[in-house]
Write a protein that binds this DNA or RNA. Structure first.
Ligand code: SF4
Ligand code: SF4
Lengths: 137, 137
DNA sequence: ATTTAATACTACCTTATGGTAGTATTAAAT
DNA sequence: ATTTAATACTACCATAAGGTAGTATTAAAT
């Protein structure tokens, strides 16, 4: 039970961009500031741009800015952009098919935590992430 | 956000063993019955035996049985046995250190889902998993 | 004693994720 | 026009998880 490194990186870097939404930041700068691997971050940023979450400005003095309002980007959007969308219907035990009219007991145990998780991912926006003005990133 | 294959396998196979706690089942049989990869399952069973969750009976007509009462084995015990214990204190964003007196907003969002997850893993026993008598395994 | 059916062990292969290297392309500044 | 600092692209490398192959060891049954 964990988030992937890539999703951690994406959340951290997007959250950082939100601090100064207008000014473009270069990957080199973000790499220094957030201590994330430079080349890997380049790939990730390009991917987020292709998915429409980032504006990219090429050439000298270029960089990336948020493409959308920070309160319109939710954690689930970020996960989807990097190909880690939550498969809500997937069986927690890896079964292909399941008669959901007769669920196993683990399924019932899983319902509540799963609902809260989905709630968190669907309703936590980038903007809300920074509401506390903590200086971690 | 997902369980590993290995943890799925472990939960499924242990749950199956609980159905007839006294009789030893061979890996070959479990492999057929649960449709899990034979050799990989062998490794997993040996590991679970070393961790004290299973009795192993070698030689002809051997196999594995539960080493403990099914209502004394909890999901978290299984995860720990396969080296996937939940690191409760790990930062969800991968930071090494964090001043928890000033948590970031994601942390607060994470508290409730995390608590429910831990509750599920700590309080769901093998025995309770099978209380509904569903025939999935 | 031999056969047989099981676990245990060692080593290797495959796939996905995470990460690196080098180069091409773009555009501002001079 | 040239330099410079940025993204974009292609290809490869490293690590961990998942999976396979072959053989040694064990113990019941005959
Ligand atoms: S009821 Fe059990 S077997 Fe069916 S999808 Fe849910 S966890 Fe899987
Ligand atoms: S408060 Fe934020 S930075 Fe600190 S441990 Fe929690 S998620 Fe990580």
């Amino acid at each position: 039970m964990h988030f992937s490194k890539t999703s951690e990186y994406a959340i951290r870097v997007l959250s950082y961009l939100h601090r100064h939404p207008t000014q473009p930041y270069s990957v080199a700068f973000l790499h220094e500031e957030l201590n994330l691997p430079y080349k890997y971050l380049t790939k990730l940023m390009t991917q987020l741009h292709k998915k429409g979450l980032l504006n990219s400005i090429r050439g000298r003095d270029g960089g990336f800015t948020l493409a959308l309002d920070a309160d319109k980007i939710f954690l689930c959007d970020i996960l989807e952009a990097i190909g880690e969308a939550l498969e809500s219907n997937r069986c927690i035990l890896g079964f292909e098919k399941c008669d959901s009219s007769n669920p196993c007991a683990l399924h019932n145990q899983w319902l509540k935590p799963k609902a809260l998780l989905e709630d968190m991912l669907k309703n936590t926006s980038l903007a809300s992430l920074h509401s506390t003005e903590s200086i971690k990133f």
